[in-house]
Write a protein that binds this DNA or RNA. Sequence first.
DNA 1: GATCTGCTTAGATGTCAGTCAAAATAAACG
DNA 2: CGTTTATTTTGACTGACATCTAAGCAGATC
Lengths: 123, 123
Amino acid sequence: MSKQSIGPLTPVAMDDCRVPLVNEPLNADQAERLAPSFKALGDPIRLRLLSLIASHEGGEACVCDLTDAFDVSAPTISHHLKVLRAIGLVTSERRGTWIYYRAEPAALDLLSTLLSVPQEVGV
Amino acid sequence: MSKQSIGPLTPVAMDDCRVPLVNEPLNADQAERLAPSFKALGDPIRLRLLSLIASHEGGEACVCDLTDAFDVSAPTISHHLKVLRAIGLVTSERRGTWIYYRAEPAALDLLSTLLSVPQEVGV
DNA sequence: GATCTGCTTAGATGTCAGTCAAAATAAACG
DNA sequence: CGTTTATTTTGACTGACATCTAAGCAGATC
């Protein structure tokens, strides 16, 4: 596999991907940029982490809230959070002792749109 | 990582996952069932394959149509198609000499819904 | 400033995934 | 029935990834 340095899933860098993939074929470049995001969601722990963060009250969650929910070590959770952060699905902010993670709705929305299946009104 | 035998992403087996992950936290079981689908989308070639198939005229594409679009060998394409088929994102049917692949809209829709971000009307 | 707690980084290890060449299967066709 | 074409399976190789322990760093508190 080629070295794919995963860039952040920012709206600007992805504007040409805001089309359902059932509508027109993705080109190689678009696929290379999008795949890392799905790969990041392809781990059960990361999927739950994202869901826990996004659904947490206040829209954010402290790492300490997250670590307890899993059977793996704290460094492993930290690693998974780093992956989610690297592609822009979450952001983090330190406030005093704790670090808070927050989901990035625009990134989620982009991926959701990409997978969406438009209603074929006339068919 | 635990052995995760990827089962097909059938609507029935996934009915409890039809909720945006930002709404409520996924439990471990749901995450284990959903993650393989995103993992399957986490490869650029598979992402393009799915898009090529879904956007192809008639809603289906012959393997020969697909193989030419990539720089990898035919067995590699076959392998990726098998992954997409195993989780139920596509189906295949042989007609004469050729095998045709077709996208499974229900599976795509499920994943799209999961990633969707509901409008917070009141906030 | 010593120490405690929260979190991340570094390094090591075992497993998994993507790729290819070669062989196998399957249908069509002479 | 032998050959050709289309696709898959097998087996091997290589690189990537999830996980852990141990160590590092950053605030807070005494």
